[in-house]
Amino acid sequence: MTYKAILNGKTLKGETTTEAVDAATAEKVFKQYANDNGVDGEWTYDDATKTFTVTE
Rank of each mutant, 00 (worst) to 15 (best):
G9Q: 04
E56C: 06
G41Y: 05
G41P: 02
L7I: 15
T18R: 04
K31F: 06
D22A: 03
T25C: 07
Y33N: 02
G14I: 15
L7E: 02
K13H: 11
L12G: 07
V54T: 02
Y3D: 05
K4S: 06
V21C: 13
T18A: 08
N37Y: 13
T49D: 04
E19H: 13
T16Q: 08
V39N: 02
E56M: 07
T55G: 06
T44I: 09
A23Y: 12
E15N: 06
D40I: 14
A5V: 15
K28H: 08
D22Y: 03
N8A: 07
N37F: 14
T17N: 06
Y45M: 00
V54M: 14
E27D: 04
W43P: 00
A48Q: 11
G9D: 02
T55N: 10
G9Y: 06
A20F: 02
A20D: 02
T2K: 13
T55C: 06
V54H: 04
K13V: 09
V29E: 07
T55M: 07
N35R: 15
E56N: 05
T16R: 10
T16W: 15
T2H: 09
E42L: 12
A48V: 12
T53Y: 13
L12F: 15
E19M: 14
Y3H: 05
D46N: 10
K13F: 09
T44D: 08
Q32V: 08
T44S: 12
T49S: 10
G14C: 15
T55F: 07
K13Y: 12
N8R: 11
G9A: 07
E15F: 14
T2C: 14
D47K: 09
N35D: 11
T17K: 08
N37G: 05
A48H: 09
K31R: 15
L7D: 02
V21T: 11
T51A: 03
D40A: 11
E19W: 15
F30D: 01
N35G: 09
G9E: 02
A26Q: 00
A34M: 08
A23Q: 11
A48N: 11
G14S: 12
D46P: 00
A48K: 11
F30T: 00
K4W: 10
E19G: 05
M1I: 14
D47E: 14
K10D: 07
G9P: 02
T16G: 04
A26Y: 00
E27V: 06
T51H: 02
T2G: 06
K50T: 02
V29G: 03
D22S: 07
I6N: 05
W43K: 00
T18N: 03
D22G: 03
G14T: 14
V39A: 04
V29C: 08
T53A: 05
T51G: 00
T44W: 07
K10V: 13
E56L: 06
L7S: 01
A24F: 10
K13A: 06
K50I: 01
A34R: 00
T16L: 15
K10I: 14
V21L: 12
A26H: 01
E27T: 03
V21P: 15
L12A: 08
K31S: 04
T18H: 06
N8H: 09
N8G: 04
K10H: 12
K13I: 10
V39I: 14
G38T: 03
V21W: 12
V39R: 01
N35W: 14
E42C: 12
V21Q: 12
K50Y: 09
T11A: 10
